[in-house]
Design a protein around this nucleic acid. Structure first.
Length: 204
DNA sequence: CATGGGATTGACT
DNA sequence: GTCAATCCCATGC
């Protein structure tokens, strides 16, 4: 059984952590899944909630690395982030998709009996499947209740696809989305190679 | 205190 | 492809 990641794992550049989290496991409330998609957010760019500075909402983002930043999106969904970089820097990795690995029955019950690849293939879906709520905001990802565990020892590095972030209107050019290349469990839209995007832009 | 805007999803045409 | 649901919170009076 892999150990939870410790705060020092998160206390480094957010882009580095976003890649390193691929292959790690999120566990909560009798269910777990392997991270297959992440996005990075940093106070220096306007898509990040921390861009506006410290407010009641962003207090967690500027706090200790290795804690959960959970917020409500579109009035409906809870979004799970891992706070990164040293305390005082507002940055976090959004967990966007998991490959379900434990507690599948529980996840199906919470998600309305959907197919396995629909259980956690989106940031709002995975919090529903793992029963993660706003009450988990500010909690330690090492001590729980929500935990992120290191990859199994000796496991191969995944091939990573980079793409632009999903659903944001500010700083849309930053390719700060990271996906496991061959995973069937990533969210829509499926990530595209930069070369394919260039071909389209050229007018194909 | 009123307002407006989302780091989305699922249902429907 | 289009579109509404729904609520927290930043902002501005």
């Amino acid at each position: 059984m892999p150990a939870p990641l410790t705060p020092d794992f998160y206390e480094r550049p957010v882009l580095e952590v976003a890649r390193a989290l691929l292959g790690c496991t999120v566990a909560h409330a009798g269910a777990a899944g392997v991270i297959v998609e992440t996005e990075a957010y940093h106070e220096s760019e306007p898509a990040c909630h921390a861009f506006v500075g410290v407010t009641p909402r962003t207090r967690t983002l500027f706090g200790e690395p290795g804690r959960a930043y959970v917020y409500r999106s579109y009035g409906i969904h809870a979004m799970l982030n891992a706070v990164c970089e040293p305390q005082g820097v507002g940055a976090a990795v959004l967990i966007r998709a998991l490959q379900p690995s434990a507690g599948l029955e529980l996840m199906r019950a919470r998600r309305g009996g959907l197919a396995d690849r629909e259980l956690c293939s989106g940031p709002g879906k995975l919090t529903q499947a793992l029963a993660i709520t706003l009450a988990d905001n500010g909690s330690s990802l090492s001590a729980g209740p929500v935990r992120i565990l290191a990859p199994a020892h000796g496991r191969a590095e995944p091939v990573v696809l980079e793409d632009v972030r999903v659903g944001i209107t500010k700083a849309p050019e930053l390719r700060w989305r990271f996906c496991v290349a061959d995973s069937a469990h990533v969210s829509r839209p499926r990530p595209r190679l930069a070369s394919a995007a260039r071909r389209d832009a050229a007018g194909g």
